[in-house]
Design a binder for these strands. Structure first.
Length: 136
DNA sequence: GCCAACGTTGGC
DNA sequence: GCCAACGTTGGC
């Protein structure tokens, strides 16, 4: 089975890695952007996602796993958006900062840098492996 | 269907 | 806290 890789962005003041760990499996809600929604819909069970803290920290801090594929976002009155359930699986040994990612030439095309406002984005296998390496 | 106005996100 | 970039809304 082929695994796909993603990156999920969250403001730590709103929903942090620690919240995710404490909650266990929980909804990734609040996505209100069509491109991000389309990415959520493409996620399959067992896909892995980087958990990125935006704004105050700007670092990838951990890895979450998709445990339930997309369904209607109960917090969305317009019924246009969806959620997936994710569960924290592993904290990175060392967070990988946005600066480090930007400084790495091999990561210059990563969606995180190219589309800074997108909150759910695909990550290539090569990018995933490299970031994992950087976190060790 | 175009586009100006507005709101939000997120880096700095 | 500012502002650029981007997405959405709504008038025409």
């Amino acid at each position: 089975m082929k695994i796909n890789y993603w990156l999920l962005k969250s403001e730590p003041e709103t929903w942090s890695w620690d919240n995710q760990v404490k909650e266990g499996a929980s909804m990734w809600d609040g996505v209100r952007n069509y491109q991000a929604r389309n990415n959520l819909k493409k996620m399959k069970k067992n896909d892995l996602c980087f958990f990125y803290h935006s704004v105050s920290e700007r670092s990838i801090i951990g890895i979450v796993k998709v445990v339930k594929e997309y369904y209607q976002d109960p917090t969305d009155k317009t019924e246009r958006f969806v959620v997936v359930d994710v569960k924290a699986t592993k904290k990175l040994k060392k967070p990988v900062s946005l600066n480090e990612i930007k400084e790495n030439n091999k990561l210059k095309d990563i969606a995180l840098v190219k589309q800074s406002r997108l909150s759910v984005m695909p990550i290539k296998k090569t990018e995933w492996d490299l970031i994992i390496k950087m976190s060790n």
